[in-house]
Design a protein around this nucleic acid. Structure first.
Length: 281
DNA sequence: GCGACAG
DNA sequence: ATCTTGTCGC
């Protein structure tokens, strides 16, 4: 697919001030509310899975006629997992996208581009965004949702890489990061979170959003039985575009299948490594 | 100057 | 992100 908002292209030759201005303008176009057609309940990590982690011990609700697999499997949404990798001492940026529907891979595409600028916290889009957009150009199917590695709204100017990609393509997007860029957890994350738990990440004075605005969540996608001895760090999920913070985390929860990272991300991770190996590690 | 920082 | 063997635990 091609960007519908090319004016926001992450040009790495811009000055730092221009990059930040572009991010503020782009964030103004981002929608941090649900605005998509598919039913969130039709999102699953694998075919025929009802393997949802504890969300509060809700009662089983089968609002269907009982016919096998009627939870919208005929038109299950296509989710695009996006991940980056670098090769040749960081000289080349590899972007890999794996599109899947109900856990079934339907297409894999990639792009390799020379690295223009170094990694700068807050300006990741200008280092990896170009390669991601190039990879999306190669994608023939129309994804319903993109799961991008990195932050979305959890960003100084609410314009993380997931937001950048989502707005440019006008595609619902979610950012999934392994580390927190900014913002303040509503409660200490030092206390072990149990699988399925989420803690709001609020805007502090480093974020261009009203103080206290929930810009994402720390989400415990996986946890060991005895956290006292061994524990897993949570994921940091945030809206990229056309998704609310709550729904973004709900969707990521539905896309996880026993591992810390959601399946779309794992698939893209794996593919990125394959491409990197072929290109020249 | 101090602190803090996705991939 | 990347460099890397063994190793602890379920």
């Amino acid at each position: 697919m091609t960007p519908v908002r090319p004016e926001f292209a992450p040009d790495p030759s811009l000055s730092r001030a221009e990059m930040e201005e572009l991010q503020r303008d782009l964030a103004a176009e981002a929608l941090f509310e649900d605005d998509f057609e598919f039913d969130p309940a039709s999102i699953s990590a694998s075919a025929g899975d009802s393997t949802q982690t504890t969300l509060g011990g809700s009662a089983p609700d089968e609002s269907s006629d009982g016919s096998p697999g009627d939870s919208g499997e005929t038109t299950a949404p296509i989710v695009a997992g996006v991940d980056q990798a670098f090769a040749a001492d960081g000289e080349k940026a590899v972007s890999a996208i794996v599109a899947s529907r109900g856990g079934e891979v339907v297409e894999r595409v990639h792009a390799v581009e020379p690295t223009e600028i170094p990694y700068i916290p807050g300006l990741l889009s200008f280092r990896e965004g170009g390669a991601i957009l190039s990879a999306f150009e190669e994608l023939s199917v129309e994804p319903d949702l993109a799961v991008v590695d990195g932050s979305g709204r959890i960003h100084f100017r609410q314009a993380g890489i997931a937001t950048h990609v989502g707005v440019m393509l006008d595609l619902p997007a979610i950012g999934v990061a392994k580390n927190l860029l900014c913002g303040r957890p509503a409660e200490s994350l030092d206390d072990y979170l149990r699988e399925g738990e989420r803690v709001p990440i609020e805007a502090d004075d480093s974020v261009t959003a009203p103080e206290g605005t929930v810009i994402g969540h720390a989400y415990q996608s996986r946890q060991y039985d005895n956290p006292q001895k061994r524990h897993v760090n949570p994921l940091y999920v945030s809206p990229g575009h056309r998704v609310s913070a709550d729904t973004a985390t709900d969707l990521v929860g539905r896309l996880c299948a026993g591992y810390k990272l959601p399946e779309p991300t794992r698939l893209a991770d794996q593919f990125a490594d394959e491409v990197k190996a072929e290109v020249g590690d």
